[in-house]
Every structure is written in structure tokens, then in C-alpha cells.
Design a protein around this nucleic acid. Structure first.
Lengths: 239, 239
DNA sequence: CGCCTTACTTGACCGCCGTCAAGGTGGCCG
DNA sequence: CGGCCACCTTGACGGCGGTCAAGTAAGGCG
């Protein structure tokens, strides 16, 4: 239980300060959050939120990593997002009210600071900068989701090409033969993020390799033909 | 060009007043919007916004109907949303900045009031009620998109079942043999909304009919087994 | 009233991809 | 050093669904 007189854990305070939703909030407001937070240390694999549960709380990841995913009836996972320290957990659900639209699970030992959904709304009311940041964040999420939905009209190699291209824009580094990137996750996770299974992803990589678009060495991918990759990823298959 | 001295068109003013994003804004603020708006009457089929264009404006549909959709490389449409009078057009893109993530097109003769994206941000800054409404709207959009993405892990009959069930929750009316609904659009549009093509949708309807879940008469659908429909739509296929 | 366009349905075909199965590879620990 | 296990790859196969084609039904207009 939170103790109003206590001094917040320093790691919790630091993580809350780092959260992009209220980066421009006043220091006191963030400290108030930190004191109100219910902090939990959980082992790897813990379920943080469960799809369908009442969304009366949201969290901030203080330490560790987590996945947000949907569990199909057959147990197949569809990965929506990977999160790390400073990222909000289920904040959208807290704003929308109702129920959590997906599951979240710690993929490493993790520390999470839990807050009532009203706390986020209060912050929005009292700090205009927070309202702006929340609106920007939400609007960008909607735009990203639009892109995700569009990508389902592509086949798996094209979806992979799109992912590689987008990632190259973000963290690509020039190398001797092309643009080099690290996959941000295991290939199994990448398969889930692209809405497919490891076997099919493996074939998609083989296809891009055989067509001379990329070279693959474990999680390190060298993009040999950026232009062709971008075209393939936008739905215009080259012949 | 807007004329500051002119009296806004009454239909424009009424549509702006009806827009859910600023329903609780002050009357003066809405009138200011109406005077600033660039109003256009366009014929059926006009492109309102084009995917990839700079998102420097957003609109409010004053009259008529419009579709928001993605155009695949082969010309296939994926329908995201259908809009009517009072609905905002491309407001999310205006908030996110960057470029329009989808296309919008009038499906009837339509009147649109266009506003610069800064006008929406100003309204958010000056009217806290607008900020709240925008955040709620965006959060709900994100939740809905989550559901849409999840549905792509289902086959077409299940996606159709999910749509019918959701619609029954909204506009279903009891009838002699079950719950009766009207499809809100043509079957071709419904196919595009479910991410498929008319032929496959037709087979999906046939399948639900043969399994005794629904009866179909044109755009009027009678749901005979609500429970089975809900189960199928949530991914648990009944045997 | 009859034609024509549009919307929908049904059938045949086939390609993508999910599943099952069998290796292969690398890392960690005893 | 050996063995285990997680991760990945490759092959074979089958089903869902997209495409092409033809046929039917329904609404608009001369």
C-alpha cells in the first residue's frame, strides 16, 4: 500500500520522470504520482494485464521489458508492442475506459508502478502540457495502427520488407555493402509481430535473400537494395 | 476564401455544432471555427484527402457521406470507416502531423468545411472540454483498431460473425425468429471493411446460413443463434 | 416496358501460408 | 567436453481465400 509520508523509491521516481506522456509536467505532479504508485516487482513471464479485464489501472514500466500481445483461440500470439523502462502500460485502455484490449506480460524480471486510471485523467486536467503529449501520442498510435492494418493486405515477404525498411530508417547504419540493421527481437517474436509464424518468416527471409535484397546473419541484416525493399514493402512487387 | 465579416452558412454552423469533438466547447469558439472554415461542395466520388499528402488540414462533413479507405497496389480497397454529417475528416492526421495515412472520398454529393490543423490545436489549448473529448475519441479509436488487427487472425466467416454480433449489440431488434439487423452498407463495402472481396464474403454468408446461424434477405439479416455467432466471432469455432 | 448497368452469387482453379515433421545450429551448464 | 535445449531452417502437404469467369437478380432510365 502507498504510504503518503514515505519517500518514493528512487528508481520509480526516475522511471516516472522518463515517461514521455508527462515529460513536461511539473516536478511536484510527478512526485505525487510516484507516492501514489503501487510498486510491484514481478518475475519473468508474469502477466501484467489480461485482455478483457476491467481497465481501472495503468502502469509504468520501471525496469525490465514487456510484450503487449493478443492470444488467439489456438494459443497463437500476435505481438503488438514491446516495452521497456519508462514506457506506459495499458495507458490507452485507462483513457478509453472499459476493458483491456490486449494482454501484457513481462519478458524479463520487471518492476511496474501501478496507478489508478483517474490519476492520469487528473494529470491531464491540471497540466496542459500532459494533455498535449497524450493527444500526440494517441494520434500517432492511431496512424501506426492504420499502417499495420494496411500491411495485412500484403503477403508475408512484403510485410517483412516493410518492417526492414522502416527499421532501416530508424536504426540503419551504412556498412561496406549496404545498410545494416539489427532486428530488435528474436525471429520468433518478429514473426508474431508480423502476424505470421516462424516457419513462414524464415521462408520470407530466404526469398528476400535469394532475390538479392538482403543478407542475413542471425539477427544482423544487411540491406543490399533499399529501393527494391521499399517498393516491395509498399505493395508494388517488382518483376 | 473565408470572409471574417460574413455570416457563416447555417448548415456549416449546424454541422460544426454537431461535431462530437467539440460538443462542449463554447458557442463563440465554434462560431469562430465556422467563420474560418473553407467550405466546399463536391460531387459524388470526389477525393477529399489522399494518402501520403501533407496533413495540414482537416475537415468536417457538413452534408453527404464519405469513405475512409486504403488503396492497395492492385486497386483493392480496404474500408476503414464510413462517415456522415457532423463527423470529422482526417482529424487524427491533423493531430499527428505528417501525412494522411489513408484516403477519403465522398460517396454522395457532399459539403465539407476545411480548417487548418492549427485550429484544432488551438481549440484543444483553450477549451479543456475539447481536450477531454479528443483524448476519449482517440483512445477509443486505438482500442477499436486493436480489435480490428486481432480480427485478422480469424478466417472470413469468423470476421463476419464478429461484425454481425457487434452490430446486433448496437442496432439489433428482436424479431419473430431472432435478432434482426440491417447491414449498414452494401455487401461490397462490407467485404472491403472486413478485408476481403465480395465473392469470399458471399461464401461466408452462405456458410453461416448453412450452419443455421443466420438468415439473409438482401441487406436484412436475422440472427438465429446469437451465442454461436458470438463464439465463432471470438475465435472459438464450434464443432 | 425493355434494356442496361450494377450488385451479388456460384463454380473452378490455384497460390500463399499455416501445420506437422525432421533436421541443423549455437549457447549454456554440468 | 558432452549433452541438452531453445531457436531456427527446410521439406511436404493441405486448406483458406483471392482471381477469373459465368450466370442471376435488381434497380434506373429512356
Amino acid at each position: 500500500m502507498p504510504d503518503p509520508a514515505s519517500i518514493p523509491r528512487p528508481d520509480v521516481l526516475a522511471a516516472l520522470r522518463a515517461c514521455r506522456l508527462w515529460r513536461d509536467a511539473s516536478a511536484e505532479a510527478v512526485e505525487r504520482l510516484a507516492r501514489a504508485a503501487r510498486v510491484r516487482d514481478v518475475p519473468r513471464g508474469s502477466r501484467l494485464v489480461t485482455e478483457g479485464d476491467l481497465a481501472d489501472e495503468f502502469g509504468v514500466l520501471v525496469a525490465g521489458r514487456a510484450h503487449v500481445f493478443h492470444l488467439g483461440a489456438d494459443g497463437k500470439r500476435m505481438l503488438f508492442e514491446t516495452m521497456e523502462a519508462g514506457d506506459p502500460v495499458a495507458a490507452v485502455a485507462a483513457l478509453a475506459g472499459g476493458r483491456y484490449p490486449a494482454n501484457a506480460e513481462a519478458t524479463t524480471p520487471a518492476t511496474v508502478a501501478w496507478l489508478p486510471r483517474a490519476a492520469l485523467w487528473e494529470l491531464i486536467e491540471t497540466e496542459p502540457a500532459v494533455a498535449r503529449a497524450v493527444i500526440s501520442d494517441l494520434a500517432n498510435r492511431v496512424v501506426n495502427f492504420t499502417s499495420v492494418v494496411q500491411s495485412f493486405s500484403l503477403d508475408v515477404p512484403a510485410r517483412l520488407a516493410r518492417y526492414l525498411f522502416q527499421r532501416a530508417l530508424g536504426v540503419g547504419r551504412p556498412s561496406a555493402t549496404g545498410l545494416e540493421i539489427e532486428l530488435g527481437m528474436s525471429k520468433g517474436d518478429l514473426a508474431a509481430a508480423l502476424g505470421t509464424v516462424p516457419e513462414t518468416l524464415s521462408r520470407a527471409f530466404a526469398r528476400l535473400r535469394d532475390d538479392g535484397l538482403v543478407e542475413v546473419h542471425g539477427k544482423r541484416v544487411t540491406i543490399l537494395d533499399v529501393r527494391a525493399l521499399a517498393e516491395l514493402g509498399s505493395g508494388y512487387a517488382e518483376e
